[in-house]
Amino acid sequence: MTDTPKAPREPPVSPHLMTGGFGSPLLWRWHITMWTSILHRATGVALYVGGLIAAVWAVALAAGPERYADFKALMGSLPGKVVMFGLTLCIFYHLANGVRHLVWDTGHGLDVKSANASAVVVFAFAAAATLAIWGLAAMTGAV
């Protein structure tokens, strides 16, 4: 009995890699649950930045009225409001997607149809809650 050499096996290819070189089709197509996963990580990072802004707020408050006025002026400027709007959106997105993950941890909503539907709900909730908070802030003169 002769031992015939086996052909070397190709290693498995990750889904995000292309198959035969530049320009060939992707093995995996983008879908909404991929976006929710990526955005969950990105919003988590953004919330760390928000924590730093909260720390700067506390330091400015402790530093006295002049420093606190400077901080309020910065946060009240257009760039400051854009950052705060973005952080509000991140908070609500991360909250909704975190609840979605908690539901998944119970074993519910893991099928493709339910996962896609819950992803749409997460985006809708984040947008609606952010607009509601900022609308309330505008109506009360806080913005």
Score class of each variant (00 low, 15 high):
74 L>M: 08
7 A>M: 13
7 A>L: 14
84 M>E: 00
13 V>A: 09
82 V>A: 13
47 L>W: 01
135 G>I: 05
31 H>D: 15
129 A>T: 02
127 A>N: 02
122 V>I: 14
3 D>G: 09
105 D>S: 12
16 H>M: 07
67 R>I: 01
111 D>F: 01
31 H>E: 15
12 P>T: 05
140 T>N: 13
114 S>N: 09
51 G>W: 03
115 A>W: 01
143 V>R: 12
40 H>N: 08
101 H>E: 15
54 A>I: 05
53 I>W: 01
111 D>N: 09
21 G>Q: 03
129 A>S: 13
15 P>W: 03
82 V>W: 04
32 I>H: 00
25 P>Q: 14
6 K>H: 10
19 T>S: 07
61 L>A: 11
43 T>A: 09
84 M>I: 00
80 G>A: 12
99 V>F: 11
142 A>T: 06
105 D>Y: 07
64 G>T: 02
93 Y>A: 00
112 V>W: 04
48 Y>P: 02
46 A>G: 11
32 I>N: 08
33 T>K: 05
94 H>Y: 07
45 V>D: 07
126 A>L: 04
10 E>D: 14
101 H>M: 10
96 A>P: 04
30 W>D: 15
32 I>Y: 00
142 A>H: 09
107 G>I: 10
124 A>D: 06
14 S>C: 06
79 P>K: 08
118 S>Y: 03
17 L>E: 13
121 V>L: 14
130 T>A: 00
46 A>S: 14
112 V>Q: 10
27 L>Q: 15
107 G>V: 09
14 S>A: 14
40 H>K: 02
131 L>I: 11
76 G>K: 11
44 G>E: 07
93 Y>S: 00
137 A>Q: 11
86 G>F: 00
6 K>R: 13
